[in-house]
Amino acid sequence: MAQKPYHGDGPDDWLRFVPVASAYALKACGVESASSWKRLAINTATSYVLSCGTTWALKHAIHERRPDGTDNRAFPSGHATVAFAGAAILDKEFRHVSPWISVGGYAVATGVAVDRLVRNRHEWHDVVAGAAIGVGGTWLGYWLGDKITGKSSRYQVGFDGNCVSLAVKL
């Protein structure tokens, strides 16, 4: 089968960050989110570490060739992972305000996934796997983050401009 040419970088390169940036922008503008700033930051970081770490590990373990032949890091789609993780964060934080905020986040993430297909960077199973990892990593990230920051947590996280510290109550 002949390889289709690479179509260059496109809007997917920056659109993948729109859902998570929207969550922070809405919170900064005073829209009531489900989390404090601390909880949002910890859960976002935990979600992205889990999601992107899983995607990175799979890309380096599976070695699936891209449809355009540029490299062998196609599976799963990192762009879809980042976009859908952000959409899941936006959903968890602002669904209570309006379900349309969630719809918008997932619509942008879907647009990123479709653009990856159109630009011949991925096959459909790459972007579906990336989307599932992004959403699943966010759900797990919120669960773990809440173990750290919840009211009955044995853990306390502090930020002081130079470092992040974790204290465990014994």
Score class of each variant (00 low, 15 high):
residue 52 C to K: 09
residue 31 V to K: 07
residue 36 S to C: 00
residue 51 S to T: 11
residue 115 D to R: 08
residue 83 A to W: 01
residue 84 F to L: 01
residue 32 E to D: 12
residue 77 S to M: 07
residue 102 S to H: 02
residue 41 A to Q: 02
residue 27 K to H: 12
residue 32 E to W: 00
residue 107 A to I: 06
residue 124 W to H: 03
residue 31 V to R: 05
residue 122 H to R: 04
residue 103 V to G: 05
residue 54 T to S: 15
residue 114 V to M: 13
residue 127 V to K: 08
residue 105 G to A: 03
residue 112 V to Y: 12
residue 122 H to Y: 02
residue 63 H to T: 07
residue 111 G to R: 07
residue 127 V to G: 07
residue 48 Y to I: 05
residue 103 V to M: 07
residue 60 H to Y: 15
residue 11 P to M: 06
residue 83 A to R: 00
residue 32 E to S: 11
residue 63 H to V: 10
residue 57 A to S: 12
residue 4 K to L: 15
residue 66 R to M: 10
residue 85 A to W: 01
residue 82 V to E: 10
residue 41 A to E: 04
residue 118 V to A: 13
residue 83 A to P: 00
residue 115 D to I: 01
residue 68 D to R: 05
residue 85 A to D: 03
residue 73 R to K: 14
residue 84 F to Y: 13
residue 88 A to Y: 01
residue 74 A to H: 10
residue 29 C to S: 15
residue 7 H to Q: 13
residue 82 V to S: 08
residue 31 V to F: 03
residue 89 I to T: 03
residue 58 L to K: 06
residue 54 T to W: 10
residue 40 L to S: 04
residue 62 I to W: 15
residue 128 V to L: 04
residue 60 H to S: 05
residue 88 A to S: 11
residue 48 Y to M: 01
residue 68 D to L: 00
residue 94 F to S: 03
residue 68 D to M: 00
residue 50 L to S: 02
residue 10 G to R: 05
